[in-house]
C-alpha cells in the first residue's frame, strides 16, 4: 500500500502496472474505459426505456385507474428513498474525490457509507413491498383492488387495470432494486480493494465507473419517484 501511494507522488517514468498491454498510453486506456461505461449506460437507458414505454402507454389508456392506484403508494417512502439515494450519490462523488487525492482511508469510508445508504434504500423498499403483500396489491391470484377514479368519485376502478399498474410498479422498482443490489455488491468489492490500496490518483477508473453506474441508478429513481408516486394523485 505504501509503495503504491509513493508511486503516485513520484512522476512515474516506469510504466504504470495498471496499463494493459494492448493500450499505448494510460490516457488511451482511461478514455476507452470511460467511453465503454457511458455506452453501457446508454444501453441501460434503453433497457429501462422498454418499461417506461409500457408505463406511458397504459397510463394513457387507463388514466383514471392509474391515478387511483398511484394514490395507494406512500409518498413519504418514495421521498425518503429519493433523499437517501441523493445522499448516496454525494458520498460517491466524495469517494471519487478521495481517490483522486490519494486518500485511501477516506475513499474506503465513503464507499462504505454509499453501501449503507444503498442498504437503507433497499430496506425501505422492502417495507413498501411488504405492505403491498398485506394489501393484496401484488399482481397475481390474490390481487384485489377497490377504489374510485380520483376525478370521478362515482366511477369504480377496473381492478385489472390497477393490476397492470402494480405489475409495472413491481417490474420497474424491482429492476431498479436489482440494479441497486448489483451496485451494493460492486461497491463492496471496491471497498475491500480500496482498503488494500489498489486505487490511487494514477488509477481509479473502477471507482469512477462504478460511480457513474450508481449515479445512473439514482437518475432512474429520480424519474420513477414522480411517475409512480406523484403525478396522478388528483386526476
Amino acid at each position: 500500500m505504501a509503495t503504491n501511494e509513493a508511486a503516485a507522488i513520484v512522476p512515474h517514468e516506469e510504466p504504470n502496472p495498471a496499463l494493459l498491454h494492448h493500450f499505448v498510453t494510460e490516457e488511451q486506456q482511461k478514455n476507452a474505459a470511460s467511453l465503454g461505461m457511458w455506452l453501457f449506460l446508454a444501453q441501460e437507458v434503453m433497457f429501462f426505456g422498454g418499461m417506461f414505454c409500457a408505463y406511458l402507454v397504459y397510463r394513457y389508456k387507463y388514466f383514471g385507474d392509474f391515478g387511483s392506484a398511484s394514490q395507494t403508494l406512500n409518498i413519504w417512502y418514495g421521498a425518503i428513498n429519493t433523499a437517501v439515494l441523493l445522499c448516496s450519490s454525494l458520498t460517491v462523488v466524495l469517494a471519487v474525490r478521495a481517490a483522486q487525492l490519494n486518500k485511501r482511508k477516506a475513499l474506503t469510508m465513503w464507499l462504505v457509507f454509499t453501501i449503507l445508504l444503498g442498504l437503507v434504500f433497499l430496506g425501505v423498499k422492502g417495507i413498501e413491498y411488504k405492505e403491498k403483500f398485506e394489501n393484496h396489491h401484488v399482481p397475481g391470484p390474490s390481487f384485489a383492488y377497490h377504489g374510485t377514479v380520483p376525478s370521478h368519485p362515482d366511477q369504480q376502478v377496473n381492478p385489472r387495470h390497477a393490476e397492470i399498474y402494480f405489475s409495472l410498479y413491481f417490474a420497474m422498482t424491482g429492476m431498479h432494486a436489482l440494479h441497486m443490489i448489483i451496485g451494493v455488491g460492486l461497491f463492496g468489492t471496491l471497498a475491500v480493494w480500496a482498503w488494500r490500496g489498489k486505487y490511487s490518483a494514477n488509477y481509479y477508473t473502477p471507482i469512477e465507473n462504478a460511480g457513474l453506474y450508481w449515479h445512473f441508478v439514482d437518475i432512474v429513481w429520480i424519474y420513477l419517484f414522480p411517475l409512480l408516486y406523484l403525478i396522478d394523485r388528483h386526476r
Partner: peptide, 30 residues
Amino acid sequence: VLGTPVVAITLVLVALERLLHLGIFNPALG
C-alpha cells in the same frame, strides 16, 4: 447497443407474465 436492451427487457416481461400470470401483454387482463 441501443436496440438489443429493449428486446431484452421485453423478453423479461414475457417470462414474468408467463410465470406470474401478469396482464401486461394479455388482452384478457386488460
